[in-house]
């Protein structure tokens, strides 16, 4: 993990796949994965900056716009939740995000030192009801639904004084 706030580093690796299908050579990206780790302050500016860097990285790897949109939406919701609830809006908190782009999926991992999730679990939420008059429409309660809808799998663990979120987003079924 980078120890310098606001910096980002990544490496491109050749996957070790002896005897891999030569047909895949036509798509060089198939043999690549990228790793990224970034550490930033748990603020609106910190979240915006990290999302911009991650988006730029994925664009560079020719990830399709639909998947990039999914990654940005998922991470935005997780990171906003960390700022607003785990750190309860207080300044000085840090967030670490690491991301791995490999064949078939994008894996994201976040670490923060805020309060644990209530019940030590991620909430299973339904989409808020949109029935009823205009004045009764919901203005919140979408975040966890979006994360669940856009990920194949999501894990949460409280390890020591830290929250760990793991998120898997499929490349072939971005919705």
């Amino acid at each position: 993990m980078s120890a310098v706030p606001g910096t980002i580093r990544f490496a491109v690796e050749e996957a070790e796949e002896p005897g891999a299908d030569p047909g895949c050579v036509a798509n060089p990206g198939w043999h690549e994965c990228c790793m990224l780790s970034t550490r930033f302050s748990a603020t609106v500016a910190g979240v915006r900056g990290s999302l911009a860097q991650i988006k730029q990285l994925l664009v560079g790897f020719d990830v399709c716009p639909e998947v990039i949109a999914s990654v940005e939406l998922v991470l935005a919701e997780v990171l906003n939740n960390i700022c607003e609830h785990a750190y309860n809006g207080r300044s000085g908190g840090m967030i670490e995000v690491s991301l791995r782009h490999s064949p078939g999926e994008i894996f994201c991992h976040t670490i923060d030192e805020g309060c644990p999730m209530p019940g030590n679990a991620v909430p299973i939420t339904e989409l808020p009801s949109l029935d009823g008059p205009r004045q009764d429409l919901p203005e919140g309660g979408f975040g966890w639904h979006l994360i669940q809808a856009l990920t194949r799998k999501m894990d949460y663990a409280r390890i020591g004084e830290r929250n760990h979120f793991s998120l898997w987003i499929d490349l072939d079924s971005p919705m």
């Binding site: 949109a69 939406l73 935005a76 919701e77 906003n80 429409l137 919140g140 979408f142 975040g143």
Partner: peptide, 30 residues
């Protein structure tokens, strides 16, 4: 737009006059 921004767009809809509609154009992929 994130879910906070979506909430703001809904809040904007609630603010318009009863006789008015709020419609959207040119949505990005996200």
């Amino acid at each position: 737009i994130d879910s906070s921004g979506l909430g703001a767009v809904v809040a904007a809809l609630k603010q318009v006059d009863k006789g008015a509609s709020l419609e959207l154009a040119n949505l990005s992929v996200a």
